[in-house]
Design a protein around this nucleic acid. Structure first.
Lengths: 122, 122
DNA sequence: TTGCTATATATCTGAAATCGATATATCATA
DNA sequence: TATGATATATCGATTTCAGATATATAGCAA
């Protein structure tokens, strides 16, 4: 566990998920793990936040879901096996991402404008 | 009214208030107005968020409060007049600010690491 | 003098967000 | 055979957010 770091708001969570999906399709569990790993465990998107978010993105038509079976070694017929839900960012999702990135940069710049200049806080 | 902009979380609110107080003492209403004005009305810290925050900062010993009377023109004796509660950032508050700024920069850098590079979102 | 707006501090409360806990199920490994 | 990792999903207690509300002084205009 690294530092706690500010909570991931829904806004940040959406920004991260869309950003990771912009690199290529992925699925819930992988998204959660990747965000943790890539941030050195500083950012976490628990399943209880992630899945409701994915449902929302899906309903808004930003991602396209598809189920795929995880092939278990030597599993012929019969048992349904484990299924994995993939998400792919579509055109609308890319546009939304661009908007969110833009809004994020503007917001960050605004906040930065208030912060004391480097070294001003003795 | 400018754009809505992401909500000011408690974390951001604290960062802003401490930052503004680092420039010099102020009071609730002025802090609220200044944050709105200086951000072109993009950032807002409504009274319902501000005052509970100031109480918290006070309890944590980060700011030192003091009441001052607002002198009404030609108001001698008698009526109590309006009172204004000033807040001054103390040493502990400055240390906290430095920590918060540091944490904010780390967090922002982490998020930025996930964002698509400029122009990557068609 | 009546009402409107601005100043000023502060709380209440309905709605929304957060996330640990829980549920379910498959698969690998010890 | 049980523990942990993979995988999706919901529940619900707690916390947070922010509009509405309360109170009061002051200035200005109708």
């Amino acid at each position: 566990m690294a530092e706690p770091a500010p909570k991931l708001t829904a806004h940040h969570a959406e920004l991260l998920v869309l950003s990771v999906l912009a690199r290529g399709r992925s699925y819930g569990y992988a998204l959660s793990k990747q965000i943790a790993a890539e941030s050195g465990d500083a950012l976490r998107l628990p399943a209880s936040q992630l899945y409701p978010l994915m449902t929302k993105l899906e309903k808004q038509g930003l991602v396209v879901p598809s189920w795929e079976e995880i092939k278990a070694e030597a599993s012929e017929e019969g048992s349904p096996g484990r299924r994995r839900k993939w998400y792919e960012l579509c055109g609308k999702g890319r546009k939304r991402l661009a908007q969110r990135v833009e809004a994020h940069r503007r917001f960050t710049a605004l906040i930065d404008g208030f912060l004391p200049s480097e070294g001003a806080t003795s």
